[in-house]
Amino acid sequence: MTEKLLRPLRTRPWPERWLTRVLGAALSAAAYLLCLPWDLRNRPETADSPVETTPVTGLGVVFLVLILLLLAAYFGHRDALAWPLLLVAVPPATLLYVSLRTHPGPPDGFANAWPLTWAFFTLLGAAGVLVVAAVARQFRADLVDEELILAHHM
């Protein structure tokens, strides 16, 4: 069973490939929603404060990063290098965009900073996913070589 879960997706039938990919994208979106919950009732901490309350915690961000990096490693190991970017980085970036776009910012000039915030975190996430996927892909080559050696000696 483990061997089937770690084989390159290109060797699997197309329904299994696409189901695995859809499941990966759903998992990355679900991780974002679970780790960074949305609270549309954000309100100022005090009457004069520009800082709002938020349900986002540092631990939630750490868990999100770990989950996304694990998904990136898994899909980097199993699929072509572009797929982890599409499956792992794009769903959270899209949800972050929607969250920042729909959330009313403070009344001062920082309300227009959300595009820069979104771009920064999207690029940071995409770079992390690509690096982890590329490293995981290197281990796939080692496993494939070992399988060929073992098959040849049997």
Rank of each mutant, 00 (worst) to 15 (best):
Q138N: 12
F63D: 00
L36Q: 02
P13N: 04
T117N: 09
L148E: 11
K4G: 05
P91V: 00
V61R: 09
R137V: 02
E45W: 10
D142M: 08
L81M: 13
T122C: 03
L27I: 07
E146P: 00
P15N: 10
T46Q: 09
I67F: 13
P92Y: 03
T54S: 15
E16C: 02
E3Y: 06
V22T: 12
L86K: 00
L6I: 11
L71Y: 06
A47H: 10
P91S: 04
V61G: 04
E52Y: 15
A126R: 04
L70A: 08
L27D: 11
L150M: 14
L27N: 09
G105L: 00
P8K: 02
L95S: 09
D145A: 15
R137P: 00
V61N: 14
L130M: 12
D142Q: 07
E147A: 15
V132N: 08
L95H: 03
V61Q: 09
L71W: 02
V65M: 11
C35G: 12
V144R: 11
L124C: 07
I149D: 15
Y32I: 01
A80W: 14
R17V: 11
W114K: 09
A93L: 02
R17N: 09
A111S: 13
W38Y: 12
V88S: 01
V132K: 04
A72T: 07
R41N: 10
F139V: 07
L124Y: 10
